[in-house]
Structure formats: C-alpha cells, structure tokens
Design a binder for these strands. Sequence first.
DNA 1: TAGATAGTTTGTGTTGGACAAACCATTTAT
DNA 2: ATAAATGGTTTGTCCAACACAAACTATCTA
Lengths: 158, 158
Amino acid sequence: MAPLPLVAQAPRRSGALLEHFARRIRLRAESVLAPFGLRPRHLIALTVLQTRGSSTQQSLAQILEMDSTNVVGLLNDLENDQLIERRRSPEDRRRHVVVLTERGAKELARAEAALAAVEDEVFAALDPDQREQLYNLLLQAASGTVDSSSCTEEPPAC
Amino acid sequence: MAPLPLVAQAPRRSGALLEHFARRIRLRAESVLAPFGLRPRHLIALTVLQTRGSSTQQSLAQILEMDSTNVVGLLNDLENDQLIERRRSPEDRRRHVVVLTERGAKELARAEAALAAVEDEVFAALDPDQREQLYNLLLQAASGTVDSSSCTEEPPAC
DNA sequence: TAGATAGTTTGTGTTGGACAAACCATTTAT
DNA sequence: ATAAATGGTTTGTCCAACACAAACTATCTA
C-alpha cells in the first residue's frame, strides 16, 4: 500500500494532560477536603456511586480499578462516617450492595462546593461554559462504561 | 437576603471524575509505555515540555508541582534516553534550560500513538469529535496557566 | 567578599496501593 | 448432603512515588 498523504496531523492524546490536571487538583483537594475527614479517593468513590448508582463491592472495585481488599478499607471509612451503607443483597446474601446515603449525598455536595475554588484556580483558563463542557464530557465518558452489574434503581432492586 | 430560588442545580465538579479517568488511563498506560522504557510521569513531563515549550527546571517543578529534587531524577531518566537536553542558560549560567530534543518529540509521538488503544477503551463512550473537544479543552486549560518563565521560543531565547 | 540562587546528590520517612493468605457466610453443583 | 466456588473481610508484606532535609558546587548579585 502506498503511504497515505498524512494530511491530518497525528492525533494528540489527552492522557498525559489529564493526569497532569488530576495531579494538580488532587494536591489542592487534599487540604480542602481535610476538614471533611475525606481524602480525594473518597470523593472519587462517592462520585462514582452518585453517578452510576449503587453497586456491588465487586463491581465497584472493577469500576474504580482498585484491588478489592483496598476497596474494603475505603468503604469502611465511608461507612464509619455514614456516607454509604452496605446492604446485603436479597438475591445473593453474600453480596453487599453499596448505597450512597442521603447524608453521603449531602456531604458530597458540600465537598464539591468547597472544591469550587480549587477548580477555579486549576481551570482558570477556561470560561464557565467550557468547564461545563468538560464536566459533561467526563460525565458522558463515565456513564458510558456500563460494564454490567451497576444499578441506578432503588436499592432492593439491585 | 432572601434565599435565591435555586433554580440552577448545584454545579458539579469535574475533579473527582478527572482523577477517576486519570487513574484508569495510568493503569493501562503503564504497560503500554513499558516497552518504551517510560513511565506515565515521563510522558507527562514530555507533554508539558511540548505543550508549553522549554522551561527552566525550577519552573518545570512549579508546573508539574513536584519537588525539585524529584524533578532532577525525572529529567535524569529523560536525559539518559536523550529525549531532553539540559542546556545552560546563557544569561544565567546557573540555570538549566530543559529542551525537548527532536528524538524526544518523535518518541513522544510514538508513545502517543501506542496509547491510542488505551484511550479508545477508556473513552469508548465518546465519539471522535468529543475526544477532540476534550483534548482541546485540556490543552487550553494547560496553556492558559502561563505563570511566567516558560518559553516557547527558540532555545537560546529563553 | 558575602550572601543568595539554581541545580544536584544522598538519605529518610510516609503513604498508596498491589498482592497473598487465611477466614466466614452463602450459594451452586454433584 | 457434601464439596466446591464465590463475595467479602482481615491481616500482613512489599514496592514505588513523593515530600522533605542536608550538604555540596557553580554562579550571580550586592
């Protein structure tokens, strides 16, 4: 095959920039979140629960791509603060269904509000519209990967 | 003041989702990058150099928000592979100006190409247009934070 | 000449997170 | 009914990324 003219420039990958910003945000978030008794990774878990609904611990580990033993510790923290609940699945009583509590949702909202300044700083170069765009893209990317076994329905239905 | 009607929903923050994706990408990138002898954080450094141009090590540490002693090690790796060069600044010979070499740029491009599959997987729910949008938003956010002392010009000009 | 600054080296400590092993409760297969 | 597999938990070990401190060289500035 003759080599294509290569008119289009090589596609740039978002990965590195994404990680770059993740780091910048995480460093700042650390201190902002401290008063809440939360760490960035707790926020991630709560956000995933809110975004994708209640999940089994197993599927949560899959989504977060964390070792399941470490997920246990993470959930222990959150459960101690009553931000999530572990409910036995009625269909398979070995399973724990992890549910964001009302308190968890409120706390998440408060934490997000506290992070406003952080994102204002890190995304200073983006106007509000663009930040909205960014958020929506990420949201869509997240909700798209429904690799089964996550559930947005009422707790007993999972 | 009377409480506002709160018609608009609370603004959602991108931070947690951003970190979530950064993690997913990093985990996959790790193995893809291994044949190149690179780690994700090397890619970040190279990307920053390409995006924002040559920098002093000091300003690089600032941008990457890493401890400068650790930046040294990072740059040592990259310099060993001849992906970057440290040039003495003519104006202030204490300073090292870090320059992405031609080889560095090529290697970065190759690495990015190798990461295509990774991003395809992680951003499966986004169509090409949306991925482009995402990239451009991140790029703009990155280039916006020109906190002085970075330089896109010819090496001797820095 | 003295002090400040850019970078380097070495060394220490903390922490996130991967991994393995042993265990309980429960479900499924034979 | 018994055995095997599965979801979750606990504990413990190991490693890599980092932050931080100290001591050093080279260079610039006062």
